[in-house]
Design a binder for these strands. Structure first.
Length: 513
RNA sequence: GGCCGGUUCGUCUAUCGGCUAGGACAGCCCCCUUUCACGGGGCAAAGACGGGUUCGAUUCCCGUACCGGCUACCA
């Protein structure tokens, strides 16, 4: 009988939630939910210095927008709370002390200055970044080099100190990764990581092990950047006596910059002009706002779909997946080992596909909100659903609906007269004057009749309809885009259509006014 | 520098040793469309390199190169 599936996403509340973070959530979520497991969010706020107000709220809001709701989180406490590590502070020390008692860890009293001095002293060309490890610890100020009395005195005097893991000598640590298979580390090459900091807060290394144990985590997914320190974590599980409860590991590949190399960062988004965060994030210190996919006009379905295919694929040619479909076909074993360069063009393609296939009724609230925010809403009662149906395939982002629908609601502020002028002449001018008269008299204000009447009038004037369609489009819509002109005319109505033509005529040469 | 990981079209990727190496995005061309899109059709584009193993390697093994991550009392 297997233990229940319990997975966790453990972000640090230091800012906006990055693409890669959301993908980690997604894979956690899919893995847990397809097996009836539990998805937990635990806030890793052990670094007081990097804590940013609002970040935790933002992270939880983002998961809500994505539809990836945790079963247990600071917002929805479960049986293993609290779900914020800062509130779990009293828990950690005893485990660190237990490790000291067993001889797997030790107290270290070195000051930051002394650590710096050590690094300077041992720095060389062949070893540019000396570590606090088994070669060095014998020369430092710790409970391994000091006598028990000295250590007790220092402890009693409340001397600031940390607890470090004592890496064993000449051992090979193995770990099985669900994505990468067997990975091994030589303990001689890893340093004595700090477990408990001087402020009594645990470091990530201690906290992740203790909390994963206490929260009964069965599978631990995280970014590839954690692979090097995984050996420390495996050792900790063993030294704490919890080896049989250790979760299965999966280290996810990184999401890389589209150009150049390296991990994708917020800076790249600024530089290359695309969002990196899921939603807008305003830095409370600088007041600067980083754009999010949500505000850039992405549908959450598309965002999630795009993320799922970054580093994973079903082995078939299918690319469009709803969350429900992903739940059916996702398989952690098919996650790649190699990092993927992020491609914003492909991301937009996913969104376009989703805009085309999502029912208009579902698009409606998004579009209505955007139009309202843009101040495009007016007194008219035009059927927004009909309009969305007319233009949705032309919209890659939800924000494209602004350009594609605003001319239905308001007379275009400027029209592209420059595209009419070169081929404009008196005959065309007369045609439009006559068209206005024709329209004023008609009672058949619908797409088909408008189209036929236009054709007939063109023929009567001996002008090719093609010569007149573009001018009419620009007069009504403002530019060379949008759905069929007669559908636009039919929707905006007789008075408005005539008004727009008159307005355009006034901006064009008309020798006989 | 050390440690760990990775390497198929420009990009995301398929391939459980048999390949004329498939799909998608982007690009280009054509059709459809009296706009822009949608849609349809087409073109171009890849196995880092060197050794093995094998009847046969993109696929397995080794080495090299290159890329990435880590190397904090940050996560």
């Amino acid at each position: 009988m297997n233990n229940p599936i319990r997975v966790r996403f453990a972000p640090s509340p230091t800012g906006g939630l990055h693409l890669g973070g959301v993908r980690t959530v997604l894979f956690n979520y899919l893995f847990a939910k397809q097996q009836g497991g539990t998805f937990i969010v635990r806030i890793e706020d052990t670094d007081q210095g990097r804590w940013v107000p609002g970040a935790e709220e933002y992270i939880l809001d983002t998961l809500e927008w994505c539809g990836l709701q945790p079963d247990e989180s600071p917002r929805k406490e479960g049986p293993y709370g609290p779900y914020r590590q800062s509130e779990r502070k009293p828990i950690y020390r005893k485990y660190a002390e237990a490790l000291v008692a067993k001889g797997h860890a030790y107290y270290a009293f070195d000051t930051p200055e002394e650590l710096e001095a050590m690094r300077e002293k041992y720095k060389s060309d062949s070893n540019p970044s000396p570590q606090y490890n088994q070669a060095i610890r014998g020369f430092m100020k710790n409970s391994l080099t000091l006598s028990p009395d000295e250590v007790n005195q220092l402890l009693e005097a409340k001397t600031p100190h940390v607890i470090r893991i004592k890496m064993p000598e000449n051992e090979t640590v193995h770990l099985v990764d669900m994505i990468r298979g067997d990975i091994s580390f030589e303990t001689n090459t890893v340093d004595d990581k700090v477990l408990l900091k001087a402020d009594e807060m645990p470091t990530y290394h201690l906290a992740v092990v203790v909390d994963d144990y206490l929260m009964k985590i069965s599978h631990a997914f995280r970014g590839e950047e954690w692979l090097p320190s995984a050996s420390v974590h495996v050792l900790l599980w063993k030294y704490l006596g919890w080896e049989t409860a250790m979760p299965e590991w999966a280290h996810l590949p990184l999401i890389l910059k589209p150009d150049g190399h390296g991990k994708l960062s917020k800076r790249d988004g600024d530089r290359l002009g695309f969002p990196v965060f899921a939603m807008n994030w305003t830095d409370p210190k600088t007041g600067e706002t980083a754009r999010g996919f949500k505000e850039n006009g992405f549908l959450p379905q598309a965002f999630v779909n795009m993320l799922a295919l970054l580093g994973w694929n079903p082995g078939s040619d299918q690319e469009i997946f709803s969350l429900e479909e992903l739940l059916l076909v996702f398989n952690i074993n098919r996650v790649h080992k190699g990092g993927a360069k992020f491609d914003y063009e492909k991301a937009k393609w996913f969104n376009h596909e989703w805009i085309k296939r999502v029912p208009t009724s579902e698009l409606l609230p998004y579009v209505a909100a955007i139009l309202q925010a843009e101040g495009i809403t007016n007194g008219t009662s035009l059927p927004l659903e009909t309009i969305i149906n007319l233009v949705k395939e032309r919209c890659t982002l939800l924000t494209d609906f602004i350009l594609q629908t605003s001319f239905f609601f308001q007379t275009p502020e400027t029209i592209d007269v420059d595209s009419i002028k070169p081929k404009w002449n008196e005959a065309k001018n007369l045609f439009f004057v006559e068209l206005i008269r024709n329209w004023q008299l008609t009672n058949n204000w619908n797409t088909d009749d408008l189209h036929h009447a236009f054709q007939e009038l063109a023929a009567a004037n001996n002008i090719k309809p093609g010569e007149l369609m573009l001018p009419l489009r620009i007069m009504l819509v403002g530019g060379k885009f949008g759905p069929g002109v007669f559908e636009v005319a039919a929707l905006i109505g007789k008075d408005e259509s005539i008004h727009r033509i008159q307005r355009a005529l006034a901006q064009l040469p008309h020798p006989h006014p």
